[in-house]
Design a binder for these strands. Structure first.
Lengths: 344, 344
DNA sequence: GCGCGTTAGTAACACGAGTTACTTAAGGGG
DNA sequence: CCCCTTAAGTAACTCGTGTTACTAACGCGC
């Protein structure tokens, strides 16, 4: 005894008009003549019956799905580590909802199994694609772009000329390290957030180098370690730095999550932060200010990143001109205790 | 010059058969007679043309979308705080992908604006619904359930007889507090993870009470405070407990995130953990073991929670019988430094 | 040689919308 | 009185697939 689905046909019958008219009225089709009276009759009938257009039927006819997909091109570790991502998603889905779009989530771990998300496109399941953490070994991406499929990267892919929204990682890292230099440090370690295959990781590394160069400090590979998203990797990396004959007096850890591991290692070896080792993190996770010591870090506009990406994508889909193909958002250095600045 | 979409018609023509036959072959329809030779011819043609069925057309015909929606019935704070949720999502989407389903993400903040997700159902956009953090003031939920729409709760809703997957919060909290009691504490504070409107919060509170009762300790409302997902709330709550004339010697904080705030407050007032205040958290966020001191906490099977929920939902959709309507998963007390146990 | 079952396949309809091209009636000008 | 325009609305087609009911050909037994 399941309630039968209400179709536009039912609405038409109740209002005493044709299905065409119903469609015209409900979609507010311009340049079409419908008397105010029938218009009201149709609206009322639709309301009374609780009519909802069938999404599949509609998208079959209009060739639009009003659905976006967010592809998370990254491992489980990464998804999890990123409180950051949750905020990006919040921004994305807020704008999407505002403009009448749904958000499909498509995480996948299998490197190279990118066929998976291409099927979303070739089955006409979505109107546009947001790819987070794109990798340069993904061959499908440039292809999709060449075909003109609406696409926005969260992050960057050098070489490819694809619409993207990102944070200026290099500038942010530069400022973080420059701050440490200003505080008098001359031997500064680096623990990256991730392996260098990730462009965000490379960019932060580049910012680190720039700051050193500008201060005429030499780049010393022996104080550089590579984290991989999670605290454990920071714990281990800091352990290695401390085992050096001549450890740095400060370290830039390009991820808060990783920095927490580093702090644990320092505590374990009874080294005081910031007195014996100054630390600057990256991300400004919600916990950063409640850590002991509270963490100096770089704040990312995660929510806004999502908003801008969704905005850009929907504009592309709807054929509007977009002002800039590459949006770089600014970051903010949040100074707390772990770097040893005087409180401001 | 956009490549024209390849339809089953094209495949039929290339293979020299009818469209019906193509459909039969590609869908492996049973009890239908197709010679091995034509079968091969069709498969080959489909392969050569790179044929992909149009999702909307298909779901119009079959009345199935092969899409699930995850409704996040909670505020931005919550989404963000939960590294937990990320893992649940991982479990969900893994099973979904395995069984050929897509996952639609539908967070929403407006309490009461539940009409929003109902539209997913009434527009036939999805085959099933997973609702995380259901609230008892949601009137749509029981209604959907009564209509027989496939539904699984992540969490519980007392009163309603809806399929659900959850963690045994009461038992978990009971064990956490019992552990503190065993260590000799007789005055134990409680900081909840969230306001009591959330059932998870109530359940943990109940576990706390049970442990006290069983040890013949009296419930003292003055050492109970209500957190709300984020570290800040824990910082403040602990501040209040410390301001009491007679503060507790141990506190059960029903969320790691909130516990971090509590730890910060303790450190600020130079109280040693666990010596002057023992702490047990809840969630086992990835950072828990790297905090200073490392956090004793309750580990939740987040990933498995997602797996089971997806499994249950897809079974419901496909009309299979489900063994139990209510799945409660076990938790694990992870003993670290913050509770003051001897290392095991 | 006739009827019957089986094999291999197809024509035609359903799903629920959007859209193009056409019809009909009323009003207006000469 | 006739022609022309405009307002109001509709019949019929499209989108791409799944599915039911039917047909044509073939082999087989009697």
């Amino acid at each position: 005894m399941a309630k039968k689905r209400v179709t536009s046909h039912d609405v038409a019958r109740l209002a005493g008009v044709s299905r065409t008219t119903v469609s015209f009225v409900l979609n507010d089709v311009p340049h079409v003549q419908i008397s105010e009276e029938t218009r009201q009759r149709v609206l009322e009938a639709a309301e009374n019956l609780g009519y909802r257009p069938h999404a599949a039927a509609r998208s079959l006819a209009t060739r639009q799905t009003h659905t976006l997909a967010l592809v998370l091109y990254q491992t489980a570790d990464r998804i999890m580590g990123d409180a950051f991502l949750a905020n990006v998603v919040r921004g994305l889905s807020e704008i999407a909802q505002q403009r009448g779009f749904r958000l499909l989530l498509h995480p996948f771990e299998g490197i190279g199994k990118s066929e998976a998300y291409v099927s979303l496109v070739s089955e006409n399941r979505i109107d546009g694609l947001i790819v987070s953490g794109p990798r340069s070994d993904d061959e499908q991406l440039p292809e999709l772009c060449a075909e003109g499929f609406p696409l926005v990267l969260l992050g960057q892919l050098n070489g490819a000329d694809i619409n993207c929204v990102d944070v200026d990682n290099t500038a942010a890292a530069y400022r973080a390290v420059a701050h440490l230099i200003k505080l008098g440090h001359t031997r500064i370690g680096l623990i990256t957030n991730a392996p260098l295959e990730y462009t965000a990781s490379t960019d932060r590394w580049r910012g680190y180098c720039q700051a050193l160069t500008e201060a005429s400090l030499s780049y010393d590979e022996s104080v550089v370690r590579y984290g991989s998203f999670v605290a454990r990797s920071g714990y281990q990396a800091m352990g290695e730095l401390l085992a050096l004959a001549e450890p740095p007096s400060a370290t830039f850890v390009a991820s808060d999550e990783v920095a927490v591991g580093a702090l644990a290692a320092l505590h374990e070896q009874s080294l005081a932060v910031p007195e014996q080792m100054a630390i600057v993190g990256f991300d400004d996770i919600p916990l950063a200010r409640y850590l002991v010591p509270s963490l100096t870090t770089v704040r990312l506009p995660a929510y806004e990143l999502g908003v801008r990406a969704a905005d850009m994508l929907i504009q592309t889909i709807e054929g509007e001109n977009i002002a800039e193909k590459k949006i770089l958002l600014n970051t903010q250095l949040i100074i707390r205790e772990s770097c040893g600045s005087k409180p401001q």
